[in-house]
Design a protein around this nucleic acid. Sequence first.
DNA 1: CTGAAGTCTGCCACCATTGGAGGGTCAAGG
DNA 2: CCTTGACCCTCCAATGGTGGCAGACTTCAG
Lengths: 152, 152
Amino acid sequence: MGKTDAFLEHAEAIERGLLDIGRAAKASGVSVKMVRHYEAIGLLRKVARTYANYRVYTMNDVHTLRFIKRARTLGFAIDDIRELLALWQNKSRSSAAVKKVAGAHLEELKRKIVEMKSMVATLEHLTHHCHGDHRPDCPILDDLAGARKPGA
Amino acid sequence: MGKTDAFLEHAEAIERGLLDIGRAAKASGVSVKMVRHYEAIGLLRKVARTYANYRVYTMNDVHTLRFIKRARTLGFAIDDIRELLALWQNKSRSSAAVKKVAGAHLEELKRKIVEMKSMVATLEHLTHHCHGDHRPDCPILDDLAGARKPGA
DNA sequence: CTGAAGTCTGCCACCATTGGAGGGTCAAGG
DNA sequence: CCTTGACCCTCCAATGGTGGCAGACTTCAG
């Protein structure tokens, strides 16, 4: 508070343990592109800049980026992550609120898996019955064309 | 060939068993929007028009739309469908070519399922250990924040 | 001083689909 | 004839998350 906020020259910032965007990206596993993007959409605070307008990150920012990265890896959507970040930073949160977000995502994942498994089942059935040779006859195309098992 | 191609007035077209886009959409299960889109990207031929510039579809077009619809339901990408449609319409195709497209898609689906299952496993583990009550302590946030089982 | 590597902003592309704006057309009924 | 409502038309934009490129500037090492 007392000290001026905008000291900030690149070399000096690095010396003081701060990171430029490249280092922050490497340290968090998020691409430089996405680091900027997350800032643009308000997932990450607007970070400080050097005189040359370079972004300057603290280790705290890197933690946030890692949090985002991990959440993305678990398939959370950006808006979910926005909420999770808010909960993370809110020390009077309830774990129920967190569990609710995770639970909804979990259900969505399961729903999608069921859907894809159904596709897989159908496709495996069809490919199993497809000769896969030089001849044109193909149950896969028959199915797509709407032929429903002529024998059944 | 002999007869002029562009008779085409709306009422007459309908009488002759042709369909306007709304009917074609309903008959195929594809939305009106997407019917136009599929034409725009060359998945469906450029259909004829009435004098008033309304699109006119044949039952053949409806079959194609159903084919596309079914393929999308099975998760095929547009470019895959483009290829499948070409194979469908090519009577000297080899079933092997069809099987190859389906097989690649199948593998991709399986890959995604494995990926999502891994997410589900992690999330279920975490939510299982989350109290989900008024207290702030939450293993889900701990995981996202990078805390790796302090006990282990 | 020069060159390479890093950073800045801004814009476009992907994929499939939906939505809207702003207009024309068709059919039914007054 | 005129209105009304349900169609249809085209064009444009947005979604979500990421990558890529262009043109300009900065930094740092040789």
